[in-house]
Amino acid sequence: AKGINYVINQISRSNRDFSYVTGTLTSEKTLNLKIKTKQDSIVKDFYAGPNSKGDAHCFVFDFYLKNK
C-alpha cells in the first residue's frame, strides 16, 4: 500500500499525454489504476508473469495515439 503513490507519481510524470492517473488497492492486494488520456489512444497490454518469488505479478500496458 505504501508504494501506490510512488507508482501513480511515476506514471503521471512520464512523458505521456495523461489527463490524470488514480489508483486503489483492493483487499486482495491488487492495484487498480484509472488512467485518462488527453487524446484518443489505443492500449496495448500483456501479462509479464510473476516475480522471481512468485508472490507478485506484472501486467504491462502502453498507449498509442489512434491514427486519424
Results as ranks from 00 to 15, higher is better:
Phe59Asn: 00
Asp40His: 14
Ser41Arg: 11
Lys29Glu: 00
Leu65His: 09
Gln10Cys: 10
Asp62His: 12
Tyr64Gln: 14
Asn67Gln: 13
Asp62Trp: 02
Ser27Asn: 05
Phe46Ile: 05
Leu33Lys: 03
Thr30Gly: 08
Lys36Pro: 06
Ala1Val: 00
Leu33Tyr: 04
Val21His: 06
Gln10His: 06
Phe18Ala: 02
Val60Cys: 12
Asp55Met: 00
Leu25Gly: 05
Leu33Phe: 05
His57Thr: 03
His57Pro: 03
Lys36Gly: 02
Phe63Tyr: 15
Asn5Lys: 13
Asn51Phe: 08
Leu33Arg: 01
Tyr6Arg: 03
Lys44Gln: 14
Pro50Thr: 07
Asn32Lys: 14
Asn67His: 11
Asn9Gln: 05
Pro50Asn: 08
Asn51Cys: 14
Gln39Arg: 11
Gly23Thr: 10
Ile8Asp: 09
Ser19Ala: 13
Thr37Phe: 08
Asn67Trp: 11
Thr37Met: 05
Val21Asp: 03
Asn51Ala: 13
His57Trp: 06
Leu31Val: 13
Ile8Tyr: 14
Lys29Trp: 05
Gln10Pro: 09
Phe46Tyr: 14
Thr24Ser: 07
Lys2Thr: 04
Gly3Trp: 11
Thr22His: 06
Val43Trp: 07
Ile42Val: 11
Thr30Cys: 08
Arg16Val: 11
Val60Asn: 09
Thr24Leu: 01
Gly3Thr: 13
Ser19Pro: 02
Asp55Val: 01
Arg16Lys: 14
Leu25Tyr: 00
Ser27Ile: 04
Lys38Asn: 14
Lys34Trp: 11
Asn15Val: 07
Phe59Ser: 01
Leu25His: 01
Tyr47His: 11
Gly54Arg: 00
Gly54Asn: 01
Lys29Phe: 00
Leu25Thr: 06
Phe59Cys: 02
Ile8Ser: 10
Glu28Tyr: 00
Thr24Gly: 01
Ser41Leu: 03
Val7Gly: 04
Ile11Tyr: 13
Ile11Glu: 15
Tyr6Trp: 03
Asn51Ile: 07
Phe46Gly: 00
Phe63Gly: 11
Leu31Cys: 13
Asp17Tyr: 15
